[in-house]
Amino acid sequence: MEFDIKKSIDLLGVICPMNFVKTKAALAHIKPGEIIEVKLDEGESIINVPRSVKEEGHKILKVFNDGQSFRLIIQKGSDQ
């Protein structure tokens, strides 16, 4: 499935909570309904960031497992 990605950020090597902070910063720059892609490390990052993103009303459309890392496809919620 293809996504219309507005912005892609690489957060490999960025630990909590800055990975979430930078994800929020990226989401602040797009409109509700638009989509960003976020590259995250396995472990804490991929456990915590999607959970926090969902708690703020955004939608995780898909998680790609690229082996050692993950790509998160996030659609900005309208709650913002």
Partner: peptide, 26 residues
């Protein structure tokens, strides 16, 4: 726009749902 240093400085605000990036801008 916030620099990386500012994102880190204000990270505990930005994490808050009721502040966030936009609130920190305000």
């Amino acid at each position: 726009e916030f620099s990386d240093e500012q994102l880190e400085r204000y990270s505990r605000h930005i994490i808050l749902k009721d502040v966030g990036y936009e609130g920190q801008q305000r």
